[in-house]
Computed example of a mutant assay.
Amino acid sequence: MTVTGGAPATGERTRSPSAALLADLAVRALRQEACLSPKPGLADGRGRGAHDDMGLPLLLASARTLRPTFRAVAEAAERAAAGARFLPEPAGAGLREELGRLGRAGEAAMLRATRGVNTHRGALWTLGLLVAATAAGAADEREAAVRAARLAALPDRRLPAGPPSHGELARRRYGVPGARGEAEAAFPHVVEVALPRLCRARAAGAPAEVARLDALLAVMSLLDDTCVLHRGGPEGLRVVRAGAGRVLAEGGAGTARGRAALAELDGRCAARRLSPGGSADLLAAALFLDMVPWPEPGARAGRKVFTCRR
């Protein structure tokens, strides 16, 4: 999938929402994703899903813990972008390293709050990049994704050596893009899949929860989710993708046939211990971008954007 869009002309910088607001929106997006139900294989208000160590209260506590990190990320991006085109070298590399340092500190705080449970490592990476891109002056969702991709592609020379994550191991083993590849491609499953589905569902009059579930299922039906691959391999991924596609083909989470297909998929995920955490992270990213108060439409004439807040 191709994402188009670009930065403003040299010397032009869009006025950004405050760092405090962006942090609040990032946390709100995590909370909305956590509370969404029923999510196949994922912890929600009904229970732990395919997890033994994760439930809704823990996810909400984890999200609260990350607010200072998101604010610090936004402030760092504001400073780096002030008075300059976004990400000139060497400022871009310096910002990337600063974001890496902030992200690692945020992850440590998260793990202390959750007693070692990895609740939001992937979401911290994804939302951190998008918060930074938005704070630095992106004018809309697509531009935020493109700017975030530039950041993701830069090396973090201060990254300490350590064992690879489960997602990274799955990425290497199965040759899929993973969270890093998604970011470097400018988040196609967020901008081209989740946001348009969210908009279509809302335009059709669907309740917010149904719209969010359909957006999640759209991502699940297409994404090579490394969380699923780690737990279930290619066959587990086939179950998740085919099951999510069937829910949508039956009319989505807002129809009786769609809900029946969703319940069936939920049961299969529980039986196989499959948790589409990567898809959940990308839904949170879409919810964040949808909530950002972007400039008025006239300020971005000619751009195809997907903001669809009520």
Rank of each mutant, 00 (worst) to 15 (best):
48 R>Y: 01
34 A>N: 04
73 V>A: 07
67 R>F: 01
18 S>D: 11
68 P>T: 06
14 T>P: 01
34 A>G: 07
77 A>D: 05
61 A>E: 09
10 T>N: 01
64 R>H: 13
26 A>H: 13
48 R>H: 11
56 L>T: 08
75 E>S: 15
22 L>N: 05
45 G>K: 10
51 H>G: 03
41 G>A: 12
38 P>C: 06
41 G>F: 06
25 L>C: 08
50 A>M: 04
59 L>M: 15
46 R>V: 01
82 A>G: 03
4 T>I: 09
24 D>F: 08
37 S>F: 09
76 A>Q: 08
21 L>R: 14
7 A>P: 02
78 E>P: 00
72 A>S: 15
57 P>E: 14
43 A>Q: 09
69 T>R: 04
46 R>L: 13
68 P>Y: 12
79 R>F: 03
52 D>C: 04
72 A>D: 15
4 T>W: 11
49 G>L: 02
71 R>G: 04
23 A>M: 05
67 R>P: 00
71 R>T: 09
68 P>W: 11
24 D>T: 14
24 D>E: 15
13 R>H: 11
49 G>R: 08
63 A>W: 06
8 P>S: 14
20 A>I: 06
32 Q>K: 12
36 L>H: 13
62 S>V: 03
47 G>Q: 11
69 T>W: 10
5 G>M: 11
69 T>Q: 10
57 P>Y: 12
8 P>T: 10
15 R>G: 04
75 E>H: 06
70 F>V: 00
77 A>T: 00
42 L>I: 13
5 G>W: 06
12 E>M: 10
59 L>K: 15
73 V>R: 00
19 A>G: 15
45 G>H: 07
76 A>T: 03
51 H>S: 02
9 A>F: 11
10 T>F: 12
6 G>R: 11
60 L>D: 00
24 D>P: 02
59 L>H: 05
62 S>Q: 01
14 T>H: 11
21 L>A: 06
43 A>T: 01
75 E>Y: 01
84 A>E: 12
49 G>I: 01
32 Q>S: 15
11 G>E: 11
68 P>R: 11
78 E>L: 14
59 L>R: 15
20 A>K: 08
72 A>W: 02
67 R>N: 02
30 L>K: 08
8 P>F: 10
68 P>L: 08
37 S>M: 02
13 R>V: 14
16 S>F: 03
85 R>N: 05
42 L>E: 03
14 T>A: 13
37 S>Y: 10
44 D>Y: 07
61 A>N: 07
44 D>I: 04
79 R>K: 11
74 A>E: 05
63 A>Q: 05
33 E>L: 10
62 S>E: 00
6 G>L: 06
24 D>Y: 04
53 D>A: 14
83 G>F: 14
7 A>M: 06
46 R>M: 03
40 P>Y: 08
12 E>N: 05
77 A>V: 01
51 H>T: 02
10 T>K: 09
83 G>C: 08
15 R>A: 15
5 G>A: 14
20 A>E: 15
47 G>V: 12
25 L>Y: 11
57 P>W: 11
25 L>F: 10
84 A>K: 13
15 R>C: 05
66 L>A: 04
54 M>Q: 05
69 T>G: 09
68 P>Q: 12
42 L>A: 02
32 Q>M: 07
25 L>H: 09
